[in-house]
């Protein structure tokens, strides 16, 4: 088992080393990414401010009982997650369909290493790193502004819940990407997912009851941003934190089982 661990960590180092080597050529890209991030964040903050009276000069109704800095914490978590998905998820998961289409999935399956690991961790893109940093800063900065007590225990809980959100996001995305084994064309379904996840920019209580249920039970947007933001503000409840971990574990196991299931079809049907 120890040698297994070594093989996987060494492989991961090589994966990401080669990925970074491939991207250093494109400094211009980095500049564009930075500009895009700044623009997106400014735009999101601006739209958010409209609910707090920026538009009318008054006080505004706010969002679902969240104060202006509290809502910024949610936006910070969203930005952080978006950065994680640009860094890790999109570069890897968007390739699965290409592997299926071009048949290079064969090479992956013939490697003495877990194929889901290979497909999910093959590459890394530094483009999302600034977004991660800015998201973290916004999340913690806005939290401090409302007097959140960021002691070690809180930070640890936040870290665990953020990890759990990342896992949920990854597993959802991987589940959809897996369907490309059968229907190459439904690849666009992941775009639908991404569009729907934009709902995570706002706290879950900012939505009408129907959407709130949808975003908690069907598409777990609530666990992606609201729950970690509550943890920053020191008010996440035990059941919600546990539910987040449970949902993450459930989706992760589901994505694994579904991938195994899909491979059975790939390996019995491809020609």
């Amino acid at each position: 088992m120890a040698s297994d661990w070594r093989r996987y960590t060494r492989t991961l180092r090589r994966f990401w080393g080669t990925a970074l080597a491939g991207q250093l050529e494109y400094q211009l890209n980095l500049l564009i990414e930075l500009l895009a991030m700044a623009g997106n964040l400014a735009g999101s903050l601006f739209v958010l401010s409209l609910f707090y009276g920026n538009g009318s000069g008054g006080s505004g109704p706010g969002l679902g009982g969240w104060s202006w800095p509290e809502a910024q914490v949610v936006l910070g978590v969203y930005t952080l997650l978006d950065g994680v998905s640009s860094t890790l998820l999109r570069p890897n998961l968007s390739r699965i369909v290409t592997h299926v289409q071009e048949g290079t999935l064969d090479f992956v399956l013939l490697k003495p290493i877990d194929s889901q690991f290979w497909l999910s961790a093959r590459t890394v893109s530094p483009a999302g790193l600034p977004e991660i940093a800015v998201g973290l800063a916004l999340m913690l900065g806005a939290g401090l502004k409302v007097g959140a007590r960021l002691d070690a225990a809180t930070l640890a809980l936040v870290a665990v819940l953020l990890l759990s959100s990342t896992v949920i996001l990854y597993a959802l995305w991987f589940l959809l990407a897996t369907t490309s084994i059968w229907f190459v064309k439904t690849w666009n379904a992941t775009e639908v997912l991404r569009a729907a996840l934009a709902a995570g920019r706002y706290p879950i209580t900012a939505y009408p009851a129907g959407l709130r249920t949808l975003f908690t039970l069907v598409l777990p947007v609530a666990f992606l941003t609201t729950v970690p933001a509550e943890a920053v503000l020191g008010r996440v409840s035990g059941p919600w934190a546990l539910a987040s971990l449970g949902v993450a574990a459930g989706f992760l196991l589901l994505s694994r089982a579904f991938w195994r299931f899909a491979l059975r079809f790939y390996t019995s049907a491809s020609s």
């Binding site: 093989r7 492989t11 090589r14 994966f15 080393g17 080669t18 491939g22 048949g103 003495p112």
Partner: peptide, 30 residues
């Protein structure tokens, strides 16, 4: 114990020198 070479498919990373792909494979095969 085996390998498969397919003339019309390639496993090398397109934008990088072959050496990088070889290092990846070395790690994968331990």
């Amino acid at each position: 114990a085996i390998t498969l070479v397919m003339g019309q498919k390639q496993q090398l990373i397109w934008d990088l020198p072959p050496l990088d792909s070889l290092r990846v494979n070395a790690a994968v095969y331990g």
